[in-house]
């Protein structure tokens, strides 16, 4: 299991994100815009998909199922984003799902033709959850552009499974499903690359992380929350309120709370 969100009540969250899944594995699908994420989604789920909106947002949400090795997987298509730093509603939705929806595995689809830009998102997702599988899509297009990616080396660098795919032609998707299952069953050797920040950032983290850790009591990765607060991102505080301190229970208590806006 991921090291984040360990003890939040999953049942409530699943209801919030419209998941009804019993014993199924929940897989999140993240990626930059225009990387063929929806192709991967369609190829994996076929026509078994539902679309709707994210709770309380006008952002579209697609959800589909697939079976592999006699196990059911629910695939959530997250909005295409360049980062998870919550500068737009889409980014916030994607971040909140990975953080609070606790998917068993998060697939990050990246564009083989511009790996560097896409790795930015991969590294950010890996800060949030360790259960990541990277899907390097459009490798045929990359090769046509003269770009060759050493998948094995990338896997070693990132410390999570990496699969090369040509989603339009279905190439590599079997392998992708296999690695996703492995991660879900916890039998992959994960050693995710950690971003080491420059000294001033690390010092700032050290300054507030212990206190945050005391408050959150392991409910979330405190280093990551500290980074977001240093980043001046207030939306995370709202999200924590929304997802961990469930609003309804508080109202029953008759407490009025002013959420930091």
């Amino acid at each position: 299991m991921g090291l984040t969100c360990e003890s939040c009540s999953r049942g409530v969250l699943k209801k919030k994100f419209n998941l009804r899944c019993g014993e199924k594995f929940v897989i999140a699908l993240a990626g930059n815009p225009n990387v063929g994420k929806s192709t991967v989604f369609n190829e994996l789920t076929g026509l078994k998909q539902h679309t709707g909106n994210w709770p309380g947002k006008t952002v579209v949400n697609a959800r589909g199922n697939y079976r592999y090795e006699d196990m059911e997987f629910v695939l959530m298509d997250l909005p295409g984003t360049y980062s998870l730093l919550a500068s737009s509603v889409e980014e916030q939705v994607a971040r909140d799902f990975i953080c609070f929806g606790q998917p068993d595995v998060t697939i990050v689809v990246v564009d083989g033709t511009c790996l560097e830009r896409n790795l930015n998102l991969v590294l950010q997702v890996m800060e949030l959850t360790h259960n990541v599988v990277v899907c390097v899509n459009l490798i045929d297009e990359a090769e046509r552009k003269g770009i060759f990616i050493d998948i094995k080396a990338l896997e070693e660098e990132l410390g999570v499974p990496v699969v090369g795919t040509i989603a339009r032609e279905g190439v590599g998707l079997e392998e992708l499903k296999r690695r996703v299952l492995n991660v879900a069953l916890n039998i992959e050797n994960l050693n995710p690359k950690k971003i080491s920040y420059s000294k001033p950032v690390e010092d700032a983290i050290k300054g507030i992380e212990p206190e945050i850790d005391r408050i959150l009591k392991g409910k979330l990765n405190s280093r990551w929350v500290a980074l977001r607060l240093i980043d001046g991102d207030n939306t995370i505080v709202n999200s924590i309120y929304e997802h961990i301190y469930d609003k309804k229970t508080l109202e029953i208590e008759g407490e009025e709370v002013l959420v930091n806006a």
């Binding site: 560097e116 790795l119 930015n120 991969v122 590294l123 003269g146 060759f148 990616i149 990338l154 990132l158």
Partner: peptide, 17 residues
């Protein structure tokens, strides 16, 4: 720092022809 990390990884695994 995140971009730098991404750049470092990319340099190690990508060859451009």
């Amino acid at each position: 720092d995140i971009y730098r990390a991404a750049e470092e990884v990319t340099k190690k695994v990508v060859t451009q022809k």
